[in-house]
Write a protein that binds this DNA or RNA. Sequence first.
RNA 1: GGGCGCUUAGCUCAGUUGGUUAGAGCACCGCUAUUACACAGCGGGGGUCACAGGUUCGAGUCCUGUAGCGCUCACCA
Length: 1040
Amino acid sequence: MPKSYSPREHEAAIMQRWESARCFHATTGTGRAPYSIFIPPPNVTAALHLGHALNNTLQDVLTRVHRMRGFETLWLPGTDHAGIATQSVVEKRLLMQGKRRTDFTREAFIEKVQGWKDEYEAVILSQLKAMGSSCDVERTRFTMDPVCATAVREAFFRLFSDGLIDRGKRLVNWDPVSQTALADDEVEMHEVDGHFWYLRYPLADGSGHVTVATTRPETMLGDTAVAVNPRDPRAAALRGKRLRLPIVGREIPIVEDDYVVMPASMGGDPSDAKAQFATGFLKVTPAHDANDWEIGRRHGLAAINVMAPDGSISDRHGWSDVGDDARAFVGMTREAARTAIVAWFKAHGLLEETRPYRHSVGHSYRSHVPVEPYLSDQWYVRVTDDRLRGAALRAMAPDQVDGSWPTEIAPRSGAEGDGEVRFFPARYAKTFQQWHENLRDWCISRQLWWGHRIPVWSKRVQGGAGGIDLAAHGAGHLRQPTQHAVLAVVRVADGVQVSPSEATSGEFDLHICTLTDAAGAALEPHGFVRDPDVLDTWFSSALWPLSTLGWPDPSAFEMAGMLDEFNPSAVLSTAREIITLWVSRMVMFNRYFLGGRVPFRHVFIHSVVQDGFGQKMSKSLGNGLDPRDVIDTHGADALRFTLVQMSTSTQDVRLPVDMICPHTGETFTPKTIVTDSGYTVAAPVQESPKAPGKRMVSSYGAASGTAEPGTEQPLARNTSARFDTGRNFANKLWNATRFALANLPQGRPPELVTAAPASMADRWMLARLAQAVATIDASIADYRFNEVGDALYDVVWRDFCDWYLESIKPTVKTDPLQQQCLRSVLDGLLRLMHPVMPFVTETLWSAVRAAGPAGVRGLALPDGELCTTASWPRPDAALIDVGALRDMERVQALVLAIRNLRGERKVDPKRRITLHAAASAMATILAGEGIVQTLAGLDRVEPMAGTRPAGALVFAHDGEELWLANVVDAVDADAERDRLSKLIAERTRAIAGFEAKLGNTGYLAKAPPAVVEETRAKCAQAQSDLDAARNALAALGAGA
RNA sequence: GGGCGCUUAGCUCAGUUGGUUAGAGCACCGCUAUUACACAGCGGGGGUCACAGGUUCGAGUCCUGUAGCGCUCACCA
């Protein structure tokens, strides 16, 4: 075995072995209890980043632990088509070639997106492999593959049939760049420096004007009223009056509505920020503002849409009274129109004032431009229905519900799935609950080409005296829903759904949802047209726990039994922003479609990895890490261990980002600058710390375009010194194993596997191993991953390497029983380490196996071909030998005391010294069976007797005075006095503290007796230490 | 504005129901090429636990308030 572990020499081969043995493939009918996890499918837009690496590592740890515990374990991998995100990256790429999406047919464009998807899906799957993810690759799914598509079609059809999907003209969040609607949670709020413009609207009778305040003057073209609060003192005088809308010339009413905030000067609430800016008159633009839409509905106002889908001013989407003045604005972008309209008001003396105003504006999470509230027809899932929202709330574990939920939510009924979803950490249950309590209907149509196309065919028809004659439209067979098609008739005027016979006058839309494309296509000769839009990506993601297992008919995809075996899954591991986007919808859909069954029993929310300055890692800041780089420099196990150890239950963790100098390979901390927007980033160009004069470009430099990487100044990769911990740990395990193997002869008798180790060191080590198993089991159960990492580090490095291996060095070569213990402990440790560091443990596994069978009494370690399928250690409780633990604790304390003295007096490490031990220390040394001598570098131990040898150092331990002789060649009296004085000062302070406590009557009366007793003992011991040190100092003084 | 989280050693973080003199890793200082490992070993220095009150015999831990940082929901009059 080489002296150090080199990950890249082993990782690929190990993965190969696992795969060819199909270790990660799960099936039905094994008789084993199922344990399943669905991977949150990463978007096919880009390669996996560190956040994915974290989430995948944690899922893999859970998966591997349960596999070793004997569960039938399924970790199901896959990818998400990520509609808008993927479409926009492909469009961006086309744009660089000077092409647009509309230059292609829909089919040709989708072909291009498909190409991108294939490329990144392959990258993602290879990254999963490189990280050691033990997923069942044979069951890899993609949200748009035929299996998932079948589920999406079925789900839409059922929801449509059950009246949970409907179409409506409403204000949506419109992204004018992507030209699609967005769901509420796809809108990000950003602070923007804007203005309040105060615009005068003249009264139609020429008797004056009112002034409205607005941040969006361009929407005034669509104003259909001005509202005033009925309690406003000015309201009465204006009642019944009308206004002449400037530019447009439209005559609009003044309406009275409670919604309007009165200015502080007119009796408004001065603490309301709005009252500071308000004039008391609110321009009402129902087609361009959600609140105005509501006001418009209350007062029967028209909604005049003055914009095209690209956000430009347009007279072709609902605006008809365009006069000569207004014509000039048509065709302008919304930004240009804003400027021009303000200028117009100014030029006409109608701009009263302009005030700066900083406020939050919704931006598209994809194109990052301000979202436009836009009037359009969209499909909605009525998630506010109790069958969906109520079911999600009822799924919450009762003890995690905060207070009680709204009265319109039906109570828990003991139905399947009720109360079964639990959040870790528990505080995230609140996020889930609040989201559902304030839920609004979910807009699911997206005006994109990439995605699941909406399975609805529509036709606009006229109503007639006897209702609509369906047969005349080729839909006669749909008077009653069939297995393959369902009809909805919607009155165009108000969007209300009616029965065909009720459609007696006016226009109606016939919407037919079909289960198959063929059924839809059959309608096309009759004038039906398929909806061009696609579904929100989250619609298919919401079905992930169902669709991946073949729902609605698993046997159709050779997955018979899978759905019942592996749904519900054990846990969903994800980031907290996903609670609203995805967790909620999975719970609603899974429960709805599977008779109340929840998709997962636990939701684990992992922390977000930030850079060293507490900033989110992002491409544009260049502060991210590529997991592939870390695997390359440190190995997958190092990446994994470090991520596990970082995973605390806080909401974010910091990972200081370092840089690798491309000239020297050295890791260094880059120089930083602060950007205009206040981010701390690596300076674009960095100087090599070790190669003077050589330069490099940082990721930020490249991402921001402020520095061009080239041969003179290459791009430097990011890394983090934090991963050294993981790399060092893997190497430590490697070397500990190397040492152990060197001490384990071949051909040990097999009967030793049931023998009970006799030596104190062996019994202690087995006890520590047993304790570590208990700690790790408990931590895994609560998803406290950092504790798993710490427990492994402690038992392997501190207990096994530092103490156990050092202790047994003199004896292990000749003691077969000890060899068996060493063999077994090593075996157990490899198993415990495996879920976190699968590669190094599997690499070592075959070498360790060759050393003969493992196991001792109380710890069965059945042999296995591979570590990954070996059984999880289950030590007998009796292995926790409290006597050995107590003895070893005393041994360690004595050893540390002696080492401390050696270090302080700079005793040559090689020098063997003599201890004169009093009764208690002597007992410890005997109990230690030679370990103290080995670890403290003693050549002899003698009882305390007679006079102190010349030059012997005095020290106090465990309330006793002890001597160390043969320590130095010449006594340095000054150094010795310093040491003793320091000790005296320290003990004196401690004793004062103890005595203060013990002199407190309240303490003696109220503290538990055991605590008081402990304090007394500590005080007495400190007193003995003090006495010993004082004696020594006095003796030294006399001798000097 | 509502909700949530964080503030402990130079850095990154532990600290379970309040109970010894608050811990770890990295970094730093000293010693060590010793036959598992220098990606190491041994020893050391370093914190009035953000601040101010309170409860308690006893507070890093519980309560109240303040400040700073961050996330999230709502809000474009």
